[in-house]
């Protein structure tokens, strides 16, 4: 792939993300997944933490934002290919010269970016309604962590979407996959509280390393080495998941063209 193609695909991906954002603005389920549900979680957690230190509230703000990110990834990105199939646009997307994974990357970018709204809403809720004086310990490192987290979440979503298309039996467990990741990734409480055997599962989840980096830089003044290690893990896992996703997309598209499943019959 030459530089010209990379630039072209980057531009296409941004357009896909922008148009996807516009398209999803009026979808009430999406608003529920990225705004209402994280808000409910934030309210519950903030009530439980009432009268505790402000940095615990910051933990909740970041944690509920991460729940919004994961829910959005699981339900919106996970269903994105099937949704295109049901609305009859999948053939039009597969029949263009742009690689299909570039298109899905753009769609996931839109989903992840819009779900960051849940973090902003949780922040406003804690500050305005619960009266916490919130401050970030390492704002620069936090935003760099956020940037890498977005990338890690997108890569993870790129693996989930083709798996849901190819293996319907896996998609049937979609609802059951939401809360275990909240717990295993340490969104709302540290994974140290979990049994030791769950730790390796957490380590292979990009959301876990996102939570380590974001919680560490926002509330705990984590040592730089811990943040850098979390970044390295996010980059490493993103590369691995991107590689797996690109193979899965090739297999999925070939299988769909053989089985005639690009459109609903």
């Amino acid at each position: 792939m030459n530089f010209r193609n990379i630039f072209r695909y980057w531009r296409t991906m941004l357009t896909v993300a922008e148009v996807t954002l516009r398209h999803q603005l009026n979808d009430s389920f999406i608003l529920f997944a990225i705004l209402v549900q994280p808000l409910i979680i934030a309210v519950l957690a903030l009530f439980m933490l009432k009268d505790t230190a402000a940095n615990a509230a910051m933990f909740v703000v970041v944690g509920s934002g991460l729940t919004g990110l994961w829910s959005s990834l699981l339900f919106i990105s996970g269903n994105s290919i099937n949704a295109e199939r049901w609305q009859g646009t999948l053939e039009s997307l597969v029949g263009v010269p742009t690689p299909f994974d570039v298109i899905v990357f753009g769609k996931n970018l839109a989903n992840v970016v819009q779900s960051l709204l849940s973090m902003i809403v949780a922040y406003l809720l804690a500050a305005l309604f619960f009266g916490y004086s919130l401050h970030m310990d390492q704002p620069l490192l936090f935003f760099l962590s956020l940037f890498l987290s977005v990338f890690a979440f997108i890569s993870f979503g790129l693996v989930i979407a083709p798996i849901f298309v190819m293996y319907r039996e896996v998609q049937q467990w979609q609802n059951a996959m939401e809360y275990p990741v909240y717990i295993l990734a340490g969104f709302l409480f540290p994974v140290l509280l979990l049994p030791g055997w769950t730790t390796p599962i957490s380590y292979i989840l990009p959301p876990y390393w996102a939570a380590v980096a974001l919680h560490g830089t926002s509330t705990a003044s984590a040592p730089l080495e811990q943040t850098l290690f979390a970044w390295a893990m996010m980059v490493l896992l993103s590369i691995i998941f991107l590689f797996i996703a690109s193979r899965l997309f090739k297999i999925m598209l070939y299988k769909a063209r053989v089985d005639a499943t690009l459109d609903v019959q």
């Binding site: 072209r8 531009r11 357009t15 263009v96 010269p97 742009t98």
Partner: peptide, 12 residues
């Protein structure tokens, strides 16, 4: 127009 803009981008 947005539909066309979207597909124009996909066709590079």
């Amino acid at each position: 127009i947005d539909n066309l803009r979207y597909f124009a981008s996909l066709y590079s």
